[in-house]
Design a binder for these strands. Structure first.
Length: 293
DNA sequence: GGCCAATGCATAG
DNA sequence: TATGCCTTGGCCG
């Protein structure tokens, strides 16, 4: 469930509280025991996010790749250097959850609760990983291959990222619906089901319009909006796509996501929900009509 | 206690 | 297009 903003927050958290330190690694659940052994006692060098992939590098050339999938999450706890314990990943309710820190002194990590695939631990605190769809160690070559599969990430400041997104969407082969392309991590990395629905609504685009038929200006606007919304998500720790005045008047943080059956915030129509490629797609039939360009 | 959905993706047919 | 992965919390009994 986490989208790109969540993974970038995780990378920041790891860089803040783990980088440059030796870490103990274990797999209380047992499903990553052999991998945990390979990083146990190593120096954690740094963490990087690309789209929904989290990469954590260690001082022996191996890189941990973690993908949270639908329901993965990390829990953190430790002393004051952790700036409070938190949980970052799949929210169990709408909106991301960040637990308040306990005021008591740090006396080591608690016994693992539930299915903890990987626990990383320093003298200052710990991180528990549950429910990832991917947790594996990569060689340098494998890391390069993983990253090569990903499209541009709106949260990474590559100079030509927007142009790359435009080429990917407008390519002749991109005859498929723009709603599908936005979820394709080789087209753009980091957008998930909420951001794709909200981006299409905010830009007045029919979800079924083929990407290759969009106006270049529309594609540029979509990219700029993705950069804005994902950055807002990193800052807020949750996905907020409505504007402040609208939040005050309606209480809604999103325009269409999980608002099916409710009235559109911009027109008299009712927000609809359907399935596309096995995922729920939310949209306003009034604001997102075919041929809005 | 069981069932289901969830911000995802890989693989099979 | 359908199924599996794999975990938790909410809901229903």
């Amino acid at each position: 469930m986490p989208e790109g903003h969540t993974i970038h927050r995780l990378a920041r958290q790891f860089n803040d509280v783990f980088s440059g330190q030796p870490v103990l690694a274990s797999s209380p659940q047992g499903r990553f025991s052999s991998g945990a052994e390979k990083i146990d006692g190593r120096l954690l060098v740094s963490a990087h996010a690309h789209g929904k992939q989290l990469f954590i590098s260690f001082d022996h050339e191996l890189t941990l790749r973690v993908h949270l999938g639908l329901y993965g999450a990390w829990d953190f706890g430790g002393d004051e250097s952790f700036r409070g314990a938190s949980s970052i990943g799949a929210p169990r309710r709408i909106g991301e959850r960040e637990l308040a820190a306990s005021d008591e002194g740090y006396c080591g990590p608690p016994a693992p609760v539930g299915a903890v695939r990987l626990r990383l631990q320093t003298e200052h605190g710990w991180a528990d990983l549950r429910g990832p769809s991917a947790c594996e160690l990569l060689t340098e070559q494998e890391l390069v291959a993983q990253i090569a599969k990903l499209g541009p990430d709106p949260l990474r400041d590559a100079a030509d990222a927007g142009q790359q997104f435009g080429r990917n969407v407008l390519a002749k082969k991109s005859a498929s619906a723009i709603a599908g392309l936005l979820m394709d991590q080789s087209v753009v990395a980091g957008i998930g089901n909420i951001y794709r629905a909200e981006l299409l609504f905010r830009n007045g685009i029919d979800p079924w319009q083929p990407g290759s038929s969009l106006q270049p200006g529309q594609v540029a606007a979509l990219w700029a909006d993705a950069v804005l919304l994902l950055a807002r998500g990193v800052q807020a720790g949750k996905i907020i796509t409505t504007e402040r005045a609208e939040q005050r008047s309606s209480g809604a943080l999103n325009y269409v996501y999980q608002r099916q059956g409710e009235r559109c915030l911009h027109c008299p129509q009712t927000v609809l929900m359907t399935e596309l490629a096995g995922r729920k797609l939310y949209y306003c039939p009034g604001c997102q009509q075919p041929g809005n360009s």
